[in-house]
Design a protein around this nucleic acid. Structure first.
Lengths: 207, 207
DNA sequence: AAGTAAATACCCTTTAAGGGGTAGTTTCAT
DNA sequence: ATGAAACTACCCCTTAAAGGGTATTTACTT
């Protein structure tokens, strides 16, 4: 029997998962939580084989949870379960230690398959996820394209900061921030502040 | 037996709902769809008592679906099922004809309760929804605060349009659009274009 | 018919930031 | 230690739009 912990903030979906695994002779749900913080507490006195976790959760998101679980319980295999087909989210989860990624758009049966796969030490990605594309994703593009300063500034832009505020935060001249901003727009092929803000907001909203 | 149609783009959650109603002696699922468009097609040859629908769906969202169902099949009772506790979304669904609103954060049992309630002609709102607050929501504030033109311009801003584009769309001088923009900022107590764009994007992202 | 709110369109001034440069200075890897 | 990349900081010019007004017309309200 695979011992499973579930972390999912949507109770309705959690209920569906519990219904799915009730009476399952291969998987046993030994606990569940509605956010990462709560799951970490449960993990102190439970020893699961697999953790199924959502990404977007209150208090602690799936990416942070994943990292912490891997630090303290490295043997636990992690399945990411999310509505985001955003390549960044997938990449972040993989980097944080997840072995599988299943979209909420997929049938529940896929979640079960993923859990069984990771329990055997195999990776699992649902058929709608193109792993080869993950490597060429916008984030990788951004990582090679944008310099560290530029990436930091992009994050600050996502937080709604304007150039002079960013300049203060970074202890640098606003002319420098302006320059970085221009370079970001140019490198990412954006058109104007509107698109820049949209891009930044979209990229960092789940963090 | 209550004849139920379901419209939900997350297959995993749909699977959970189907598991829940399988063997239910009060509710029978007679069909399901992954978006509003698909559901309308099903509705042409099925006669449900109740429609359970998500709000955020591809092709046609729950608000549009709700309106169209009410036009063609006014007797069908509608339960909105969404992850948004956004007051605007709730208000829009109610205005569009929904009789119940349940959050995905709530247990599946509440969905069942809501379906049974609306089938009897009663309304249903899960306990986390404060209906009295819905009336004092930001949208109502906005409705009394912002004039019709201002609201339209806010939507166009959310679509990434700049003032000259908005002027073309509305067949008006860009000076007028600029004036409306300034008034919106002033009325909503925002600070600059960044906040305006963020506000607009946040408000209209689900539409 | 008078009053009010809204929409329209303009005024002026200032700021933020795009678009396009140049140039000095760290920093790091080969 | 040499060279590339990144960071820094400035130049120019232009545009979008904020911030603050005013005036006219339209439309609804009582």
């Amino acid at each position: 029997m695979i011992k499973l912990l579930i972390s999912e903030d949507h109770q309705s979906l959690l209920d569906g998962l519990l219904l799915l695994f009730k009476g399952d002779d291969a998987i046993e749900v030994i606990g569940f939580a509605r956010d990462g913080q709560e799951l970490l507490e449960i993990l102190q006195h439970k020893k699961p084989d697999v953790l199924l976790t959502d990404i977007n959760m209150p208090r602690m998101n799936g990416i942070e949870l994943c990292k912490k679980v891997k630090e303290t319980n490295p043997k636990v295999k992690i399945v990411a379960f999310s509505m985001f087909e955003n390549e960044d989210a997938i990449k972040d989860m993989l980097e944080a230690g997840a072995m599988a990624y299943v979209l909420k758009q997929r049938p529940l049966a896929e979640v079960r398959k993923a859990i069984i796969s990771v329990s055997r030490g195999e990776r699992y990605f649902d058929s709608t996820i193109d792993l080869s594309q993950i490597e060429n994703t916008e984030k990788s593009k951004e990582k090679t394209l944008l310099s560290p300063s530029e990436r930091e500034i992009l994050k600050l832009i996502a937080q709604g900061k304007n150039s002079s505020e960013i300049a203060e935060i970074r202890f640098t001249a606003s002319s420098t921030v302006l320059k970085h901003r221009k370079n970001i727009i140019q490198k990412l092929g954006l058109h104007g502040k509107g698109e820049l803000l949209r891009y930044a907001l979209n990229k960092y909203k789940h963090y």
